[in-house]
């Protein structure tokens, strides 16, 4: 009988601890809303450097980019090898302008999933803004330490079949609500890419990952570090820059 009282006491104590823990864990939907509040944008302008590592080789590309939502983006490469190469993304179509040939090539469909300029970032990864809360259902599956910071482990499952990834596992900074690491999975369950935020900065009152490393898990020894050297969130942009005329100017 004494044993059973002990067991009841232990059980009650564990229940109380569990209740306290779940009371501390944020609501998943609220968490997603906070992440979106930090990383979703109406418009963005940045100067960035891409360090593409494949095998033992390093290639560096620098660029200036402007984007509005998920549909409009304009990128101009500034590194000497690609200087003047410009890209315009309108919806699911992408045009690339090559200054040496003074030629514009249209890229569409599956090619938008390909690595941009040989990097691990697809054109979509680099040029689109995801509002996670409208595409994924979320569940907080745990809490852990990552790089000295407390993170929530959040599992996202695509609500729409058109979601970029079927499943995503995020590690979200528990205080700043920034994704510090992410695993991206295909519908088959295979891990496609991983992301790791190296540097998080406060920009326009939001926490934003300004240096991150993306790894294509279907390629060995391949990673791309995107370093945002200057970043503006929700700046006023001229609609005229997202046109073919601007691309071929």
């Amino acid at each position: 009988m004494r044993l059973s009282i002990k067991a009841i006491c232990a059980s009650l104590a564990l229940s109380a601890l569990g209740a306290a823990a779940s009371a501390q864990a944020p609501d998943a939907a609220e968490l997603l809303a906070r992440i979106d509040g930090n990383q979703a944008f109406e418009s963005i302008a940045y100067v960035a450097r891409m360090e593409i590592r494949v095998g033992g080789q390093l290639r560096v590309k620098s660029m200036r980019a402007w984007a509005m939502g998920a549909d409009k983006a304009f990128v101009e490469f500034t590194n000497p090898e690609d200087a003047g190469t410009r890209m315009l993304k309108l919806g699911k179509d992408l045009w690339m302008y090559f200054p040496a040939e003074q030629d514009t090539v249209r890229i569409s469909g599956h090619l938008l999933k390909e690595g941009m300029m040989g990097s691990d970032f697809s054109y979509e990864d680099a040029l689109e803004s995801d509002e996670l809360s409208s595409i994924y259902s979320a569940a907080v599956t745990g809490e852990e330490e990552l790089g000295g910071r407390r993170v929530y482990v959040v599992e996202l499952k695509a609500r729409a079949q058109s979601a970029k990834y079927e499943r995503r596992v995020l590690k979200v900074d528990a205080e700043r609500y920034v994704v510090l690491a992410e695993d991206m999975y295909a519908r088959s369950g295979r891990l496609l890419k991983t992301m790791e935020a190296v540097k998080v900065e406060r920009v326009s009152g939001r926490w934003y990952a300004t240096e991150l490393v993306l790894r294509d898990r279907l390629r060995k020894d391949s990673s791309t570090t995107m370093v945002m050297e200057s970043l503006e969130l929700d700046p006023a942009l001229d609609q005229g820059m997202f046109t073919r005329a601007a691309l071929e100017r």
Binding site: H110, S162, A163, A186, R187, S188, R190
Partner: peptide, 16 residues
Amino acid sequence: LVVSASTVYENVNADE
């Protein structure tokens, strides 16, 4: 081999 391709839903799927 792992084959990855863009699906009819315009996302990427991959399998072995």
